[in-house]
Design a protein around this nucleic acid. Structure first.
Length: 486
RNA sequence: GGCCUCGUGGCGGAGUGGUGACGCAGCGGAUUGCAAAUCCGCGUACUCCGGUUCAAUUCCGGACGAGGCCUCCA
């Protein structure tokens, strides 16, 4: 970290305060985010989480260097919901084979979804099923240290064995009992005790273990995978707000009790939820949208939405605030994005032009200090974007190049934008052809042949090209620029 | 019932103990063959009630309101 870099501070759910971020090892900053359970398409709320932690990943890479950050996002591919889905979708198949089909297909879909949202690939994406042995090792340690017990064929974590259980969520087991619909199982010592390992029937997926053939509970996998790839104590652990309890609480209990450590991760970060048009997103309200649906169908607002537009809409609100996801918000995002891109395009900062840059080798500049400063304040993405608004009227090619680089840093790429535009442009794909028509119109105008001039303008408009005239401030000559409209 | 967030102009949303961030929309003007774009100007917002203070939207307390978690839902 150079001396000019602003201090990074992050809100820590554990302390309910914004704190300066101090990495355990600046040469290897380690973060973990709970990834998808791969049984169905990811919805736009899952997308928000991916974007938030992608932004953090990008910021950390900028501050500490791209080779000094490890980002682990797991794939949960063992889960009873997956089993149910596999049995439903592939009734003829052997269950394990059906499960593999479901998880592979869903994991691939997730990857393509979040890539469309501009998310970098995490450093490591471990699968739960590749880490069963590590989970068993953890469970064995918990039993040995008297934090877990076997009952009724299950292995359970004993909440009462950990004095500060509930610290993250600010609750203690007694509080929960009053209104909670916690099933009181006779075999549990405490109703809040949770499953580490459960038995599988012959048809269910299972692994041999000291406690019989079975499968892991939901929480243990993140404890196992984070330890394997990040160690017993790492820097940042993130996820959605709803994971605070019970998932993260239980992860902390498992990891700390198994290792005898005082902490699992130093900073716990949670992103807020999103609503859709003012209502909670739910299947029953009919306002439940998957990422793929927004990208590929016209279900939301009667049209498809580019991934970058969805990304910008998410970043317009601070990650801890609730977002009201609306068509109006997406339209505003698209307009902004278009304005920024066009500002860059106008100055064509590359030696040739962005068109050539599409195939080529442009190098981006480091992001603006103001941008990094805004994000360093607990990922204040809206403030960062308002900085872009202020630089969105570049007066020189170098300013335009800086704007392009800032956009690139935030995960918005000129390349994909122009690809999308090319598709929208229809017949005309050659910039020279457009320039020729613009010149022909200029000639017609010089001869006061407005009919011809307007015909050319109308033809271009049909191809999705809008022309705009302006006066050169120096010479008073007509200048015509064009842009792609959608 | 317990716990956690949050309440800023038509909208999205920063921020601050004392001159109304920024963007979108809107209004007025300049420019213009027309159109669009562009440029200039315009808003007097901080849920309510107390308290602290010379001064509160900002700090403290309370009320009201919204949302969330306590159900393997991000």
């Amino acid at each position: 970290m150079t001396s000019g870099t602003p201090q990074l501070s992050l809100y820590n759910t554990l302390t309910r305060k914004k704190e300066p971020f101090v990495p355990i090892d600046a040469a290897n900053v380690r973060m973990y985010a709970c990834g998808p359970t791969v049984y169905d398409f990811a919805h736009i709320g899952n997308g928000r989480m991916a974007i938030v932690f992608d932004l953090l990943f990008r910021l950390l890479r900028q501050v500490y260097g791209p080779d000094h950050v490890t980002y682990v996002r797991n794939i949960t591919d063992v889960d009873d919901k997956i089993n149910a889905r596999a049995a439903r979708d592939f009734p003829g198949l052997d269950l394990n084979e059906a499960i593999r089909k479901v998880t592979e297909k869903t994991a691939a879909q997730y990857q393509s979804d979040v890539t469309a949202l501009g998310c970098l690939e995490p450093t490591i994406q471990p699968r739960a099923t590749d880490n069963i042995e590590q989970m068993q090792t953890l469970i064995t340690a918990l039993i040995k240290r008297s934090h877990a017990y076997e009952a009724n064929g299950e292995v359970l974590f004993e909440v009462g064995s950990m004095p500060d259980y509930g610290k993250l969520s600010g609750r203690n087991p007694e509080d929960n009992l009053a209104g909670a619909r916690v099933a009181v199982d006779a075999h549990k010592k405490n109703p809040a005790d949770f499953v580490l390992w459960k038995q599988s029937s012959a048809e269910e997926p299972g692994w041999d273990s000291p406690w019989g053939r079975g499968r892991p509970g939901w929480h243990i996998e993140c404890s196992a995978m984070s330890e394997r790839y990040l160690g017993q104590l790492f820097d940042i652990h993130g996820g959605g707000l709803d994971l605070i309890f019970p998932h993260h609480e239980n992860e902390i209990a498992q990891s700390r009790c198994a290792h005898g450590t005082h902490a699992m991760a130093n900073v716990w970060m949670h992103n807020g939820f999103l609503q859709v048009e003012g209502e909670k997103m739910s299947k029953s309200l009919g306002n439940f949208f998957t990422i793929a649906q927004l990208l590929e169908t016209t279900d939301f607002g009667g049209r498809k939405w580019p991934g970058e537009v969805l990304r910008l809409a998410m970043l317009m609100t601070h990650y801890r605030q609730p977002i009201d996801f609306t068509v109006a918000q997406l339209q505003l995002s698209e307009a902004k994005l278009k304005q920024w891109y066009e500002a860059v395009f106008e100055h064509s900062p590359m030696p040739t032009s962005w068109w050539e840059h599409l195939n080529g080798t442009g190098a981006y500049l480091p992001p603006s200090q103001e941008l990094i400063a805004a994000l360093s304040d607990d990922l204040n993405s809206h403030l960062a974007l308002s900085f872009l608004d202020r630089t969105a009227r570049p007066s020189s090619a170098s300013e335009a190049a800086q704007l392009a680089s800032d956009l690139h840093f935030l995960g918005f790429d000129m390349e994909s934008f122009w690809e999308t535009c090319r598709l929208a442009m229809g017949e005309i794909t050659d910039k020279g052809e457009i320039d020729g028509l613009v010149a022909a119109r200029g000639e017609a105008l010089a001869n006061k042949d407005f009919a011809t001039a307007d015909r050319i303008r109308a033809e271009l408009a049909e191809q999705g090209i809008a022309l705009m005239d302006s006066k050169d401030p120096e010479t008073g000559e007509r200048r015509t620029k064009w842009e792609i409209k959608r």
